[in-house]
Design a protein around this nucleic acid. Structure first.
Lengths: 182, 182, 182, 182
DNA sequence: AATGAATGAGTTTTCATTCAT
DNA sequence: TATGAATGAAAACTCATTCAT
């Protein structure tokens, strides 16, 4: 899986052959097929691993926050997302946005989970009076993609890449305006 | 090009062979290579055509608005984006987000152009006192991806798909909050 | 061996993998190679087992007949062949007629044994004045294949399959004509 | 097709790879797949070609006989079968008896055609009073397989191979006895 | 005696691209 | 300008066999 992930990142999924992967992993071709039914199966396994790792990291981060301090919780959430994404946007995009256009499968589990989590938080915060959000589901979608796109952009920036702190601040401010936080 | 576009949408770029395309177009294989250097070249041509069509449509829409009425201009802009995207997200994603992950090429021309245009408008609107945006470039990026993601989501929704009007209203409201329009 | 025989019959020799066989037999791959040198070796073992079983059954049947009553002996012989073949034509064809065409090995031991036995009987019967056969070797070959083909045909017949008795009668009558039995 | 036929005869169907075939035919691998969908498809094409050739040769032979002289017609028929089979038993067995045991497909078209033809002749001859055959269908099957097996045997005989003439005479005599020709 | 993970040579098949007509 | 037969490199996948445990 590590060899596959590395090669997929380097050359793209289509361009990395099973041959390349097993050579990099120092195993025989048959060994690959002992553990994965096909190349697609490996991609699926990598997707699963990505989602698990990602969600564990977000959870770890948020844990430390005071559950009733919504401002702090969102701060932590945004920090978690930024830190985690910046280290893995390439992989995320590779696994969830490239591949061969399977309309049905698109808008993948990974995103769904995060978006749903975000919507839940927005609703809870509204009920707690921390802010005012009329359509939490749609807002979650808009925020998710805004953040994702921005982090994609930052990750792609070669020179004068802004600091993590600056990115967090920018997203925090964007978030505040969107939820009309007082 | 039409045959290619149709088949790419149906089966994905990798899965649609030149053979399929020329058969659909009712020409011989050689004829294809008379007009395109390679399969990639066709994809590039489709990308170019997409960008042109897209930008012409946005411009057409906005033209009718009163240049000094920023509220109306943004309304028109959002309407244009929604109308145009809803009819072509699939194609857009196919051409600009799938394919073989060429990190360099990513964050494509298409997006850059629109994001730059949006940033310019945000800046001008701020200068005209229509709203207040501190970091127009970053805000443009955030807005662009928020909109794009939301439209992607809507396009993918199978049942109870919201009306264009409702989508425009949602995005308009999101926009207002983000730019702290008074 | 049983698992192999069953799977070979179900899927064909080439299509049944060692993996399938050991899984069906509930043993490990290594265990297979403890008892058989190769897949071919298993096929050879099945062939041997088939010939032994077949010839024992024929012998058992004929034993009960009066050795000097040729008419009865042939009746018993034909009964034995019909009974035995009808239960195993598929296996017989699988083991002796499919496989990878090794011209040398063809016209296999199994057939040779039976044909020789038949020729001997024809000769003995002629000497005993029971019938008149000029070229016993050739006649044995002709009879063997006639019987084998007919039984193959019957075994393959799906609906309105004739009874064993009817088949025996048909073959008996064919035999009589061929040996010009009076 | 010629290269395939030659190699299949030499090494067996399974052992002859597409690679071998295209090398022998002096064409590229792709060319093979331009004309045949798969290896099986080539085998099917060879089967078809075999049946056509075979039946044309039988028909050519019989044509010369006097239609009302049944003795002569059968003589011609047997001559045709012997001549034709002796030159192609190996190929016939390869195409129709080896392969991967497809119970349903067995007892192939080739045989069916010939057996049916033979049954028709037996019936017509009986009606014309040339001989007496009670069950023409079954007799045809028995005769077909007797002949086929005998010719197989002759073709396989390495030393002291009997002459075509001798084989024809043997089969002719066998036939006479079976149909109780007077 | 039994196991089963690992092997890798070998096979079929695909398809973008070329080029003589 | 158009054709389409021919190409062949490259890819995915299979499976009989081995051998350290």
């Amino acid at each position: 899986m590590d060899a596959g992930e590395r090669l997929f990142l380097e050359k793209g999924i289509a361009a990395a052959s099973i041959d390349d992967i097993v050579r990099a992993a120092n195993v025989a071709k048959g060994t690959f097929y002992l553990y994965f039914q096909s190349k697609d199966d490996l991609v699926a396994a990598l997707r699963e691993r990505y989602v698990e790792t990602f969600q564990r990291r977000i959870a770890d981060y948020e844990e430390a926050a005071n559950p009733s301090d919504w401002s702090q919780r969102m701060q932590r959430f945004i920090e978690a997302v930024v830190e985690t994404y910046l280290g893995s946007v390439e992989l995320h995009d590779l696994l969830f946005h490239s591949a061969d256009h399977h309309p049905e499968r698109r808008a993948s589990q990974s995103e769904e989970g995060i978006v749903r989590g975000l919507a839940d938080r927005l609703k809870a915060g509204t009920e707690a009076g921390a802010w005012r959000v009329e359509d939490p589901e749609m807002t979650a979608i808009l925020l998710y993609h805004a953040f994702h796109g921005a982090l994609d952009h930052v990750a792609m920036t070669k020179k004068r890449k802004p600091s993590t702190k600056a990115v967090v601040a920018t997203l925090r401010s964007f978030f505040s305006r969107v939820v009309q936080q007082t």
